[in-house]
């Protein structure tokens, strides 16, 4: 599968961190690549590299690479003068492109230094978020993805299905080929889009009944919804030749609403 077909869709992510060679950062770079992003690492050459060198190189890369987002460290080097160099780089990035999403990679996600960082970013209108450096690569990429914010053209549901938002169609993936599931259209498709969009934003996000009621008919809206969900599961199951159980694919969470989960292969 090419990176264009993955979540990242080949989008470039500029990585500005003096510890980009560390194992921890390598795991983040690997996850970015695995999800279809193209990481561009800012790595000034020469001796006695300072935070200023990173700042210059970052601006150059913004101009030449035109990334979709920046992953930026707050602290550069071990000297107090470079303690908040990332904030100065952030200011330069925002001056260059006010709409550039920036995820700041820092230990200061809480406490007074986070406030320092926030006040530095709030003075500008850019989309800035902070994440602890100990966060898992999955969490980093998820936050970055949300920060970029653009809804994907397609949402993958495990390795079995693909939802094509633009063409309003659901496909089953068979040996790498996409086959249209004709049965899923109209309200069933809309329910699936609602559930899949929530799952794309955050895997644990439940869609409450209040948001799904518009897809139901009759006096007993929950019963009507239950029927549609069951039909949807049957259609998806038929496409892959299996039957999804009550706690598989789409399930009711304690009568609060429904959640879509990635099916097992």
């Amino acid at each position: 599968m090419t990176s264009k077909n993955k979540i990242g869709g080949g989008q470039k992510i500029l990585v500005v961190d003096d510890e980009h060679m560390s194992d921890l950062m390598r795991s983040v770079l690997r996850k970015l690549e695995a999800d279809g992003f193209t990481p561009i690492v800012v790595a000034p050459e020469g001796e006695n590299i300072t935070g200023d060198d990173y700042e210059v190189q970052t601006l150059f890369a913004l101009e030449t690479e035109r990334p979709s987002a920046v992953l930026l460290d707050v602290r550069f080097g071990e000297y107090d003068s470079d303690r908040f160099k990332g904030l100065s780089i952030l200011k330069s990035i925002v001056d260059f492109d006010g709409s550039m999403p920036v995820l700041m990679f820092t230990q200061y996600t809480q406490g007074p230094y986070r406030d320092t960082a926030v006040s530095a970013s709030l003075s500008v209108s850019s989309s800035v978020d902070f994440i602890d450096k100990l966060a898992s690569p999955e969490e980093v990429v998820l936050r970055l993805r949300r920060l970029i914010g653009s809804a994907p053209e397609t949402i993958k549901i495990g390795s079995l299905f693909e939802l094509d938002n633009e063409n309003a169609a659901v496909y089953v993936i068979n040996d790498g080929r996409r086959e249209l599931i004709k049965e899923i259209q109209g309200m069933k498709l809309e329910i699936l889009i609602e559930l899949a969009s929530a799952m794309y934003r955050s895997e644990g996000e439940l869609v409450p009944f209040s948001r799904l009621e518009r897809f139901s008919e009759g006096e007993d809206s929950r019963a009507s919804l239950r029927v549609r969900i069951r039909e949807l599961k049957v259609s998806l199951g038929k496409a892959v030749g299996r039957e999804f159980g009550a706690n598989e694919l789409i399930f009711n969470v304690r009568n609060r609403g429904y959640r879509l989960v990635n099916p097992e292969d």
């Binding site: 966060a135 898992s136 999955e138 969490e139 998820l142 936050r143 949300r146 934003r201 955050s202 895997e203 644990g204 996000e205 439940l206 869609v207 409450p208 209040s210 948001r211 969470v253 609060r256 609403g257 959640r259």
Partner: peptide
């Protein structure tokens, strides 16, 4: 809430727990 949920989902999964979140209004 979403960020905290994302952070704790792998831990919950490892312990065999299901973690859901939602907000109203959406």
């Amino acid at each position: 809430v979403r960020n905290v949920s994302d952070r704790y989902r792998p831990i919950a999964r490892e312990r065999g727990l299901d973690l859901s979140w939602w907000c109203e209004p959406s």
